[in-house]
């Protein structure tokens, strides 16, 4: 009797769990599609395909378009990809890095011409830099942000 074969069922159980996990991941990513978001222009090109469906719009928050009411948590801004733009309405607290000029993805549906968002994520860029000479960073604010996000 090989002592290894006594352990085989454990590995078989492990393999079944793994295969189940792979199946779960494949089915969940097939549902949401490999494309995480579409741009406003892509939406306009194929409106019929996306209308009345929950989609994720990705783009940049247009400068001077952000209106946030801290009492009602109502956030309004314009999402743009340079060529097309849509007004977005969202209720809740935006992520710390949400700012005009930054990339965001919003999951939601179109209600009339306004995109009604249910989830707001910040898509940060791959660019990192230290403050330039003379540029003052608000250290206290940065520390607070880290505390808040816990």
């Amino acid at each position: 009797m090989n002592p290894r074969s006594n352990n085989s069922w454990k590995y078989i159980l492990g393999l079944v769990i793994i295969l189940g996990g792979v199946g779960f991941v494949l089915s969940s990513s097939l549902n949401t599609n490999l494309t995480f978001f579409i741009t406003p222009s892509e939406y306009l090109q194929d409106t019929a395909k996306y209308s009345d469906k929950t989609v994720r719009l990705g783009g940049v928050v247009q400068e001077n378009s952000v209106k946030y009411n801290k009492q009602t948590l109502e956030l309004r801004f314009v999402i743009t990809d340079g060529t097309s733009k849509f007004p977005v309405s969202f209720t809740g607290t935006p992520p710390d890095l949400f700012k005009p000029g930054r990339g965001v993805t919003v999951e939601g549906k179109f209600v009339g011409n306004t995109f009604q968002g249910s989830q707001l994520l910040v898509k940060h860029s791959e660019e990192y830099r230290a403050p330039k000479p003379g540029e003052v960073l608000d250290y206290a604010n940065i520390t607070d942000k880290i505390k808040d996000s816990r």
Binding site: V22, S29, P95, L97, L121, V122, K123, H124, S149
Partner: peptide, 18 residues
Amino acid sequence: PTWGTYWQWDARMTTTLL
């Protein structure tokens, strides 16, 4: 703290998990 989420099923994360 940056995106606002621990996990999303985007292509990079999904293929990493796979």
